[in-house]
Design a protein around this nucleic acid. Sequence first.
DNA 1: ATTGATTTATCAGTATGCTGATATTATATT
DNA 2: AATATAATATCAGCATACTGATAAATCAAT
Lengths: 140, 140
Amino acid sequence: MVGHRLGYVIKRTQQVLRSRMDEQLDAVGVTTPQYAALSILEEDQGLSNAELARRCFLTPQTMHKIIGGLEAKRLVERKADPSHGRKINTLLTSEGKKLLKKAHKIVQNIEGEMTSDLTEEEIEETRKNLAQCIESLEDS
Amino acid sequence: MVGHRLGYVIKRTQQVLRSRMDEQLDAVGVTTPQYAALSILEEDQGLSNAELARRCFLTPQTMHKIIGGLEAKRLVERKADPSHGRKINTLLTSEGKKLLKKAHKIVQNIEGEMTSDLTEEEIEETRKNLAQCIESLEDS
DNA sequence: ATTGATTTATCAGTATGCTGATATTATATT
DNA sequence: AATATAATATCAGCATACTGATAAATCAAT
C-alpha cells in the first residue's frame, strides 16, 4: 500500500497545509506562493526577479508571473536598478507591508494548529529529520 | 526568519522529492501525478474519475485532465460502466502495468535515498508526527 | 411517479511551476 | 577593444490544481 510510505505522508501534509493556507489567506486576498514572495521581500527589500526566484527555489519564469500578480494588486512595485541596466528591483508597497502583517498572523495560527498535538521535542526532531531528507535527496 | 518553521521544511522536502521524482520518472515518460494515479488504479482497477480524484485528494476536474494525459499515452483506457449510465471506468492497459513496474522501482529508489541517513525509528517517528499534523489540520 | 438532492463528467478560466527560447545587459577573457 | 560567457527579463507552451458552471444520470423521499 502506497499510503504507508514517508514520501506519501510528506506530500499529504504539504497538501493539507497548503490548502489551509490558500483558504485562510484568501481573506486578505493573496495566495500561498504570493505570501511566500512577500515574506522574502520583507526580509530583503528590492530583490530582482532572479534573486527572488532563487530564494523561493522557483524558476525565474514562475517568479515573474507571481510578481506580476502582486504588482497588479499594488502590493509590490518594480523600479529599474540605478546601477544596473537590466535588473529591476521589487519593493513592497505600504499596502503590501500592511497586508503582510495580517498574513503573518494567519500563517502563524495555522502552523500553531498543525503542531498543537506535538511537543517541542517532537517538532524539533521532525524538523531535523526532514532537513536530513532534503540533504540526502540533494546529494543523490 | 521564515526558513526555520516546520511548515517551511515540510514544503521544501516535498518540493525536492517531487523534483527528483519528475526528473527520474521522465525516463519512463510519466509525471509524478500521473504515477500516483496509475498506482491507485493498480490497487483498484476500474475506478471512475470521481473516485480516483477522491483517492488522490484532487478535484475531479484536475483528475480528468491527468487521466486525459494517461489515455493519450495509451497507459489507461476508459469504458462506460455497464451498470451505470454516467460512470466511466478507468483501467490500466498492459502497457500501463508494464510501465508501472519500472516506475515503482524508480520511486522506491528515491525514497531509499531520501531516508538513507535516518534510522528506522527516526523514519517511523517522523511519519507518526506528520500524520498527527495532518489530523490536527483537518480538525481545525 | 414526480420532485429534489446528490453524483458524475466535463467545459472554461485563473494561478502555479516547469522547460524551451530569445533579447539585452554585465562581466570575464584574451 | 573585441569577443565570449554569464546573468537577467520575459515570451510561449505544457501540466498540474483550483473554483465556477452546466448537463446528465442516479438516488431519496414524499
